[in-house]
Amino acid sequence: MGQDSKIRVLVAKPGLDGHERGAHVVAYGLRDEGFEVIYTGLRQTPEQIVSAAVQEDVDVIGLSILSGAHLSLTKKIMEGLKAKGANDVLVTVGGVIPEEDKKTLEEMGVAGVFTSGSKIKDIAALIRTKLGKNA
């Protein structure tokens, strides 16, 4: 039987930050890479993001944060995923992330941090490699 396996990605903007450009570009870009992107829009709480990730059975969560609140928001989401037994979901973070915070995020278990100038192709490649999936 033909396999139809698709990489599913949740693109989410936690917090009140309303700058959507990066999230939009990544959503469109990953769609054109053949991924199924669930876009949940602005002002998502960490609980909503975790719940969506579980129900949608996504392989990846892409968080976009430009307000400087990336450390606390990401931490809450990582904890929420763990509580639901979904800590195998890859989490990436994009936005305005100072160099020294990158390390902190990686220590939390974030699989990749993407700042201004990142290529969609690189994001897609990282996801494919980490998942070992090609769709």
Binding site: R31, G34, F35, G41, T45, S51
Partner: peptide, 22 residues
């Protein structure tokens, strides 16, 4: 709908269902 070109999709209906998402 999926994109006929890439086979990918942007699924956005949850945006309108945030009140019930949890």
């Amino acid at each position: 709908p999926s994109s006929p070109f890439s086979g990918g999709a942007v699924l956005g209906d949850r945006i309108r269902m945030r009140d019930i998402s949890t």
